[in-house]
Design a protein around this nucleic acid. Structure first.
Length: 595
RNA sequence: GGUUCCGUAGCUCAAUUGGAUAGAGCAACUGCCUUCUAAGCAGUAGGUUCCGCGUUCGAGUCGCGGCGGAAUCACCA
């Protein structure tokens, strides 16, 4: 950013003086120079030929010459076809470093007064969290952090789908087969216990359906009218009537689940500022739909069901209330959205982190909110992410191919422990510190793996082979941080005076490369926020670490005899470590001082 | 069938939003620990960017037509 501004300025100036053309500084685009050419920044001359009236090469030559002679910014240049490659002068690089070093919070913006809400995690209370939730949560959490880094105040919220037929199913099965089991009595985590009964329901249901179809009942009818299914529906009715016993059971079982979820969230390292429950919002949604019906925004069918007609927007008709008056998914979401803007009237943006399978749903939801006359409907955004596939294909709870969140995290942590012990570099850590380290590394690997891929894209996760601790991974970046930390510890022992920085030094090419990346950091943070895209940060921090490692391998730091050089390289390393730590923080990943 | 998204090295992913000879990691192979952490560094090999046509100085990227895959189109959530 620092460099771009200066370059844009002098380029605009040169265009004016050389060709007498007014070009807005902001509109001048620079791109990184391909590494087979000399230089770091490239200016493409093609768009400006109309001003110069000369060939691409000549235009490049003229501008390059001007910059070299008239400004101290570049020390050399070369022209290949229409590409003007600029080599920034040492002096400029050092100015840049000084600027970064002295910046209060380099790359991050101070509060700008904007308020946004990010929803991530929308679990059902009938089964445990799985790999899909991990991508969802890491993504939403990271996007929140990135928005915060850009100065926004972020409300991190969760919507808990705590009502409906699915939880009734678990409740019925627990009543029938549970024999009073509780998380305490069994030692099973609450969400797992409830999930167990959800599976039990499914099993029982299948059996009953089979019995019925054997008697000649059609499959569809059998599925609908199997005794246990009727029980579940009855239970849902009783719940809506607030039947004491059912309500109590519902509260109890949900509390088990929340307790279990919380453990999982703590391990994941994600937090929420506020929780929304669908049981609190579905009635509000219903009210709004009835209001809309009065105003004839919606219409009623003969059987009493309420619909919205979106055919004028190229979409379909969509049901909002069933013929028996009960609400559907959409009804709840209408209520939730309204409640949120009531709770936080100042929010500029409501971001839903939800899988791309629900794109249609959100398109419809936002249109309905618009029809209801809420101006803020424009501010709702569906942050849609792709599904996580397994080598065996899609995850399906019924077929037992779901990767459980707790299991996966534990596996990652165990692998990290194994790896660390093999390398044997942490004898000085206490047992507690070592345990913490395994969590940092295991989760770092997992988060980085899930976040480095563009969120919009469907991705493949191979539990056996996908998670590596080498190469383009979380631990690689963490390692770079730990390495620099070790270096800095040593430097401290040497008592190097780093208070006075005199930049009377000669830069190594690898240092220029790193500086060029450090210069990019603010851009990346901004871009990641604009696109709600953490993968930009993940790719960036990998490049930075990679590039620093090259420097580390080629340039000795502590054995520098010249004081200024020594001092510079230590400070330089510290700035890189700080930037790595900040970038990883945006991904929700911690970095260890030793590993 | 309609709509939307996707197709890049053996595998997993990039490619600065239309820029130069399409880049990383993994897997394979070759070097580098008596000097700051080798979870590292350097190197070799690997490509008709699914196919075809078009748009222009320039296409993995934009348009059209195919082929292949996914999601969605519920009185499920």
């Amino acid at each position: 950013m620092f460099l771009e501004k200066k370059l844009q300025q002098v380029l605009s100036q040169s265009l004016k003086e050389l060709f007498d053309s007014e070009v807005d500084e902001e509109s001048i685009k620079l791109q990184p120079t391909r590494k087979e050419f000399e230089g770091t920044h490239t200016f493409v001359t093609f768009p400006y030929l109309k001003f110069s009236g000369k060939s691409p090469e000549q235009t490049g030559q003229l501008i390059g010459e001007y910059l070299k002679d008239r400004t101290g910014l570049i020390e050399n240049y070369n022209v290949v076809k229409g590409f003007l490659n600029l080599q920034i002068s040492q002096k400029t690089w050092l100015e840049l470093f000084q600027f970064i070093y002295e910046s209060e919070d380099y790359g991050f913006s101070p509060p700008n007064g904007e308020e946004v809400m990010v929803e991530y995690s929308s679990p059902n209370t009938n089964k445990p969290l799985h790999l899909g939730h991990l991508r969802n949560n890491f993504l939403g959490y990271s996007v929140s952090r990135i928005l915060e880094a850009n100065g926004c105040k972020v409300h991190k919220v969760q919507i808990i789908n705590d009502r409906g037929i699915h939880i009734s199913k678990s409740m019925v099965a627990w009543q029938k087969f549970g024999k009073g089991e509780t998380p305490d009595s069994t030692g099973i985590k609450g969400d797992k216990l409830v999930g167990k009964y959800y599976v039990k329901f499914d099993k029982q249901h299948k059996q009953e359906v089979a019995t019925l179809t054997d008697k000649g009942v059609s499959l569809e009818k059998a599925q609908r009218e199997a005794p246990i299914m009727l029980d579940a529906q009855e239970m849902l009715r009783k719940w809506e009537e607030k039947d004491q016993q059912v309500y109590q059971l519902w509260k109890t079982m949900n509390s088990w689940v929340y307790h279990g979820f919380n453990k999982t969230y703590v391990q994941m390292g994600v937090v929420f500022d506020k929780l929304y429950y669908e049981s609190d919002t579905y009635l509000l949604g219903k009210e709004e739909v009835l209001k809309g019906l009065k105003k004839e925004t919606f219409f009623k069918k003969e059987d009493g069901s309420v619909w919205v007609d979106l055919t004028d927007k190229g979409l379909d008709r969509k049901i909002l209330l069933r013929s028996d008056g009960t609400s559907v998914y959409m009804t709840q979401d209408i209520g939730t959205a309204i409640l949120r803007f009531k709770d936080f009237p100042k929010i500029k943006n409501l971001i839903y982190t939800v899988g791309n399978e629900q794109e249609y749903h959100f398109k419809v939801l936002f249109l309905i909110l618009q029809k209801l006359g809420f101006s803020w409907a424009q501010e709702c955004y569906h942050l849609s992410y792709g599904m996580v596939d397994l080598p065996s294909g899609k995850m399906k709870s019924r077929e037992g191919t779901v990767v459980d969140a707790d299991d996966l995290m534990k596996e990652m942590i165990d692998t990290a422990e194994e790896h660390t012990k093999e390398l044997g570099k942490i004898e000085t850590l206490t047992e507690g510190q070592a345990k913490d380290l395994y969590v940092i590394l295991g989760l770092g690997a997992l988060k980085f793996f899930l976040l480095k891929v563009d969120a919009k894209k469907r991705m493949l996760f191979d539990p056996q082979a996908s998670i590596d601790f080498h190469g383009d991974t979380g631990p690689f970046v963490q390692y770079t941080f730990a390495r620099i930390s070790a270096l800095l510890r040593r430097a401290e022992e040497m008592e190097v005076n780093s208070n006075t920085l005199t930049f009377n030094v000669i830069l190594h090419p690898t240092e220029v490369e790193v500086l060029s990346l450090l210069n990019e950091f603010p851009n990346k943070v901004k871009l990641a926020a604009e696109e709600y895209n953490p993968s930009i940060i993940a790719q960036y921090v990998y490049d930075l670490a990679k590039s620093y490692n090259r420097f580390y391998a080629e340039v000795p730091v502590l054995s520098q005899s010249d004081h200024d050089m020594l001092n510079f390289k230590i400070t330089f390393s510290r700035v890189v470590a700080q930037t790595i730590s900040k970038a990883m923080g945006l991904l929700g990943i911690k970095v260890p001082k030793q590993m």
